[in-house]
Amino acid sequence: MNTLLEGLKQGLELGSIFALMALGYSMVYGIVKMINFAHSEFITIGGFLAYFITESLLKSTFGNSIWSLLIALVAAIIVCVIVAIITERFAYRPLRKKGSSRITALITAIGVSYIFSGIMNAIEPEQLQFHKFVDKNTSFYIAIITTAVLLALLTFFVKKTKIGIAMRAVSENEQAAKLMGINNNFIIALTFMIGSALAAIGVVIYLLDGECFTFEIGSVTIGLYPFVAAVIGGIGSLPGAVIGGFLIGIIRAITQVYSNIGLSSWVDTIIYGIFVIILLFKPSGLLGKDVREKV
């Protein structure tokens, strides 16, 4: 029983981190209908940056205080946002202008993610260890609370504010939104910014309790799981992404705490199996909307 509880707890923590990252995938897909493969590299960039800044701050007057962490977090968010803007502006926007096909957009995203991943690899191929700011218990509460707060804020933002409504309009019908006087490019860039900021927050919370990581943190360690979470929950749906994140996180942690009966080596089969089954029965995800194809 204790094992199960422990697994649930770790699953909730991992799940809320996946949820934050899944929100980014989900919002971007919802608005530009493109799987942003570079999102996983935003995660890596955020992690690297937070690491290098905390390492230098630890030696300064800030030391081991919460301020070092906060500064690192803010810096990571800012850089991730800038990287996202640059990516959007120079790789994705020209494609949208040309009205290119979806596969083109996807390949470009893969290309961008390859570039970032290659650069990260060249910078630091060895394993790094983040400074241990809080213990495992605290980081659990931080993860849960941050996710809940951010989900509430985002929902409010999307449902109630003017920009949020514009965002939904663009995702519903780009042409019509444009005709209503909405600046599409701004809205899309903003979505990318929010997504990458969430990725940065997610990865910093993930690392916070002294986690070890490599340049593959985005592409392998965390990997496709947030994306799978976004799809399971229903792409474009905010609560869906969070539910998906928790589901994947809990499955992963449960297989790990029951690793002594051999569950952990089947984690990919279990997660992707569930994923495929859900999609087959509910092609648009748990909370997604069905869209009918029209002539």
């Binding site: 697994g7 770790q10 490599t214 360690t221 705490v257 690793s259 051999g262 952990s264 990919d268």
Partner: peptide, 23 residues
């Protein structure tokens, strides 16, 4: 002897230690 597997994507081993400490 009891065996348990992890994979190359696992970097956080907290959960893997739970059954060891329990057992």
């Amino acid at each position: 002897v009891v065996t348990a597997a992890y994979s190359k994507q696992d970097k956080d081993f907290n959960a893997f230690w739970v059954p060891i400490l329990e057992g």
